[in-house]
């Protein structure tokens, strides 16, 4: 039986007269890689923020890991990982110090941190760089490190907000390998992106236009429904009707 870990029902966020996300409903299952697509300004980040407990919805309901986004944000926070759009490690701290800091914030014990840190450094082949300042690493490495740090405490769900911005295709592929590994371990991945090739990597995707979810299915089904040969075409067909222009 499938286990639902994220459930949104008519979730809406208004900023004054502006409706950033308009009654969106969807469900995400455990271990799924769920892609959240949309042009800039379509409302992806706002939706994600509501699910992470960073922003209180104007109306609608949602549960994340079984917890309510209105009342149980503290419990949600303990069960999720988050990697933001912009790179978010401390450049003036070393690789090890960054890992230790974030792990400590999630309340992990020293022994646990040590074991996991060593495993992680080996996996990323960064053992030689463990004492280098993060600021001196190439962007691709930083991004991979940031992702690994976000799932170090083994959250139920990890939210990735455009994690691969500004990264070359090879590193992006490597980054997605990390995502697959995480999904295999049972971590649900909720990822926003506007790279259409990345969309193909997801199990299911939702496409947002002007704050609404216009399509939601597997990449294969979406291509069939829209008679398109690639996700790019699907997206363009949907986005053409958009009224909001990107900022």
């Amino acid at each position: 039986m499938k286990e639902t870990v994220i459930k949104a029902e008519r979730l809406t966020k208004k900023f004054g007269d502006f409706t950033a996300t308009n009654q969106i409903s969807f469900e995400v299952e455990k271990g799924e890689i769920f892609g959240f697509l949309g042009a800039n300004g379509a409302g992806k980040t706002t939706a994600m923020r509501m699910l992470c407990g960073l922003s209180i919805p104007s109306s609608g309901n949602a549960t994340v890991a079984g917890y309510d986004v209105y009342k149980q944000t503290e419990l949600i926070k303990q069960n999720i990982g988050y990697m933001s759009q912009k790179f978010s490690l401390y450049e003036d701290l070393t690789v090890k110090e960054n890992i230790r800091f974030y792990a400590g914030i999630y309340g992990m014990g020293s022994a646990e941190i040590k074991t996991k840190m060593n495993a992680l450094l080996q996996q990323l082949q960064m053992t030689a760089e463990e004492n280098s300042l993060v600021g001196s690493l190439p962007l691709g490495w930083k991004q991979k490190l940031a992702f690994s740090v976000a799932i170090l405490h083994e959250p139920k769900i990890v939210f990735l907000d455009e994690p691969t911005g500004g990264v070359d295709p090879v590193t992006r592929r490597e980054f997605w390998n990390l995502i697959y590994e995480a999904a295999e371990k049972g971590i649900t991945v909720f990822v926003t992106t506007h790279y259409m090739d990345e969309a193909e990597y997801c199990n299911r995707i939702s496409i947002m236009v002007d704050g609404k979810i216009e399509a939601l299915d597997t990449p294969h089904n979406l291509k069939t429904i829209f008679h398109a040969s690639s996700m790019d075409e699907v997206f363009l067909q949907l986005a053409r009707g958009a009224k909001r222009t990107a900022d």
Partner: peptide, 13 residues
């Protein structure tokens, strides 16, 4: 400014 705030706000801190 360096965007770590968002990550900290999402953490249980």
């Amino acid at each position: 400014e360096i965007n770590t705030m968002e990550v900290l706000l999402v953490s249980p801190l």
